[in-house]
Amino acid sequence: MSTSMVVIFRLHRQEYAVDIAGVQEIVRLVKITHVPRAPRHIKGVINLRGNILPVVDLHGFFSLPPRVNSERTRIVIIRSGGRTMGFIVDEVLEVRSFNLDALEPPPYLEEKKGKNFARGVIRLGERLVMLLNVDVIMNELLQAGEENGRGVCTNGS
């Protein structure tokens, strides 16, 4: 049995999780500097103790309704494959351990162009939490920039 700690957060009405090993820290929403011509779902950059990091609008990425900032909005700083990015989430719900053996295969709907953005689904009673494949998502985000050249800016903030 292999257990793993995951951070569970909310985007719109859905719950997602990422492996805690990749989570550097969770910070409050700060002013995001818009970056022109950045890849599509990159909202801009923030200053994290002197390092400049891109932040990602996951709502746009998962085609969810536009994000509304609230007191609970957070940026989850995630490191993966030598890259560090911030993911804007509506709320961080909990950190808990989870038995990876009980991971269920991801629903087909979450597969875009054959890329697995989800590693699987964690079932917590009634709740269904999607465990994200951060590396694949980051690759896809940067790819989008190359394809779009002049990325279209997302609608409002």
Partner: peptide, 27 residues
Amino acid sequence: IKSLGNSLPPISALAGATILGNGQVAL
């Protein structure tokens, strides 16, 4: 002067970024 880091593809119109007194990033 700070670089925009390796987590972003290079962006032609920008020479980097700097951090303002209030902690905000300015390009």
